[in-house]
């Protein structure tokens, strides 16, 4: 057995030992929780965190220990190095894809879906006709319109924003309409006894009652928007953008760059989702599912 094989085995064994300890520690934490309730809040963050760190350690240890070719799966440390070294390229891509295409498309798509929902809410006929269609369209592979949008709006970000608008519109429409129907007859009757106008009822009763549904759509759309923008870039882009970078660097076998890009996308996606979830807690503080926690 030569020297490098021995170090590889040591790395693998250390990894497995770390894995075991993390697993036992998590077990211990959760077992504590049933006895002392104050562990609950700590565990809420700590246990998943330990699990995540363990995954990273296993990934690092096994790719190094088993000498996995970097073309297949680079270890996390190498990806991290790449993120630090080429942060200017990553920022350029991020600006192009996320700040322009995703955010603008998301705002326009969700806004349009919401406004159309309010508009058709007054017409039972449109509701009967549009809702089943909206439900149907939500299940369709809408990303497929990407090549058409690229043809219509050119290679730059407007075509990607257009894909995002179409993808986010229908979930928002369907959810908002069912949200607007969420307030009960009793509550509406109460508003009527107050002699409130249509708009007053809308703003004081029905929109607040619709908020959980609307936030549901906002959350679904936050991931859809990122997917739409990145996939649309596979069909043609200027020479920057996350989707462009991913597809070209895969072709050049620079897998660490691809992973860096993915890490960025994952981080952006999680933060976006988290921000919306946080806003939801602030706005729908009255909802049982949020009141129940703590």
């Amino acid at each position: 057995m030569n020297y490098s094989a021995a170090t590889n085995w040591i790395i693998i064994i250390i990894t497995i030992i770390f894995w075991l300890f993390a697993w036992l520690f998590n077990n211990w934490l959760v077992a504590r929780e049933t006895k002392f309730s104050k562990f609950q809040t700590v565990n809420f963050f700590l246990v998943p965190l330990i699990f995540g760190i363990t995954l990273l350690v296993i990934w690092e240890g096994f790719t190094r220990g088993f000498n996995v070719p970097h073309v297949l799966l680079p270890p996390p440390s190498m990806i991290w190095e790449r993120i630090i070294n080429s942060s200017d390229i990553l920022w350029l891509d991020f600006k192009q894809t996320f700040l322009k295409a995703v955010l603008i498309g998301y705002a326009l798509g969700c806004g349009a879906g919401f406004l159309v929902a309010i508009a058709i809410d007054r017409s039972p006929f449109l509701q009967r006709g549009l809702l089943p269609l909206g439900n149907f369209v939500s299940a369709l592979p809408i990303v497929g319109v990407a090549p058409i949008m690229v043809m219509w709006f050119g290679f730059d970000w407007p075509s990607k924003a257009a894909v995002v608008i179409i993808m986010t519109f229908f979930p928002m429409l369907v959810n908002s309409v069912s949200g607007l129907a969420a307030s009960s007859n009793m509550e509406r009757d109460l508003m009527r006894t107050y002699a409130s106008s249509y708009w007053q009822t809308l703003f004081k009763l029905r929109l607040p009652a619709a908020m959980p549904f609307i936030f549901n759509a906002l959350k679904i759309n936050s991931t859809l928007a990122l997917i739409g923008a990145i996939v649309a870039e596979f069909f043609g882009t200027p020479i920057y953008g996350m989707g462009f970078r991913i597809s070209t660097e895969v072709g050049r076998m620079n897998i660490d760059m691809v992973w860096a890009e993915i890490a960025m996308a994952a981080l952006a996606g999680s933060l976006f989702y988290g921000a919306i979830a946080l806003l939801e807690r602030k706005i729908t503080f009255w909802h049982p599912s949020i009141r129940g926690v703590r």
């Binding site: 809420f44 991913i246 993915i262 996606g269 999680s270």
Partner: peptide
């Protein structure tokens, strides 16, 4: 399993905020 619940659930949700379709080309090439 309570430990699995506590450690997996958060990551399952986080896994979906990753635009997996973005990884698609790489998974296929790899």
């Amino acid at each position: 399993n309570k430990v699995l619940d506590r450690s997996l659930m958060a990551w399952i949700i986080a896994s979906q905020t990753i635009p997996i379709l973005a990884i698609a080309p790489m998974i296929i090439v790899v």
